[in-house]
Design a protein around this nucleic acid. Sequence first.
RNA 1: GGAGAGGUGGCAGAGUGGUCGAAUGCGGCGGUCUUGAAAACCGUUGAUCCUCACGGGUCCGGGGGUUCGAAUCCCUCCCUCUCCGCCA
Length: 428
Amino acid sequence: MLDPQLLRQNLDDIRERLESRGYTLDVSSITDLESRRKALQSKTESLQAERNEASKRIGAAKARGEDPQSILDSVATIGDQIKDFQLELTGLQESIHEIYSGIPNLPHESVPIGTDENDNQEVRKWGSPAKFDFEVKDHVDLGADLGMMDYEAAARLSGSRFVTMRDGLARLHRALAQFMLDLHTREHGYTETYVPFLVAPEVLYGTGQLPKFADDQFSTQDDPPFYLIPTAEVPLTNLVANQIIEADDLPMLKVAHTPCFRREAGSYGRDTRGMIRQHQFEKVELVHIVEPNQSYDALEKLTGHAEAVLQQLDLPYRVITLCTGDMGFGAAKTYDIEVWIPSQNQYREISSCSNCEAFQARRMKARWRNPESGKPELLHTLNGSGVAVGRALVAIMENFQNSDGSISVPQVIRPYMAGMEQIRLGEG
RNA sequence: GGAGAGGUGGCAGAGUGGUCGAAUGCGGCGGUCUUGAAAACCGUUGAUCCUCACGGGUCCGGGGGUUCGAAUCCCUCCCUCUCCGCCA
């Protein structure tokens, strides 16, 4: 959520800045609602003040043994009036809050203006795609030929966009997550964190998935429902919801390995083949909780930590800055890291690193005590994949495939697989 | 799932209808004393909304009710703890 004060005072300016991300702010209805709210609020509050004052006089009169009847008469109807006003005021405030909750974050000034992914800017490239002297297979064929990856079996259990794996591939998948966790905790200073995979609705509100993106989430039928986390960003970031963090405890760097669940509504027909886009996948997620003036430094560091994973795995990638039109709802600035996928002859997203500034913190009421002011102030939150495990598996399978259909295990992963150097047919 | 106890400021803990946003202690901050520190003593110390400001409103787990007035009474939901049952 944007700062309501800022919003009220700079409506036109903010409308203009949001225009760059393809969002049209309804200035006139906001102006209208706000002016009605303002009038009603001051009217209600002065009535409350009047009642409080009279009630005190009644108490004082009784204490002196006097008859308070005349004061009682004078406030006989005030309670009902207040109730009516409050009802209307609450309604107005809810409408305003609903509108504000649906407004995306303001892009940072360094974000390129653009409408879609074609306007994203490449920041840097690392490594160079390997040259193959044979016809490359995609990970689906590689996995099937090894007998270790079966989409039909998964479909019999759960329908489309699920996978089953066995033997070497299942193990490689697990090893990748272990490797990433160890790298981030041992070398990048993150605290390994275990979190719930089912969360309450207000938790999804805090990070911005609700109310606008309810259709993308899986939920249970309980009342209130539990939501299956679409990313560990949700529970990790919400750990500071409704908290006031001491300056000494910042920055907080958290890492978690979790399954992620997404409906993928609206992506029909996209990436239907293989593991790129699934209803269930695993991800190692990085979250930074920082004081505001550190957040852009933190974004560079966070992105670097995700890149380190790919560098150690020796996977070629590039980093791009998302343009205003391609950014997610809560982000002020986002770097995507894209890994080389040989079968598609292109780079595909494997990590997305965002600075949300105070956007999520305001929704979550996540604050820190600024030593300079002594007052609680909003934190800045950042998140990034470090990295998507399923897509890393795809990238390794395709980039490390050999002409005989076997897959070489990257050096850094071998200790996690009892020294195994290759995954090949008939060997578990 | 059953039975019981309980949710009050950073923490502990009083407060059962009226100047209670809340005693007291601890902690934090400032000061006196000290070469410095500790101890002792004094002072100070919740969050949030509206307002340029003055000032005012709201908050004692959430929601609702009774009342001129609710931390306090009633209803309801949630959570925590203890015991039993079940379970990994």
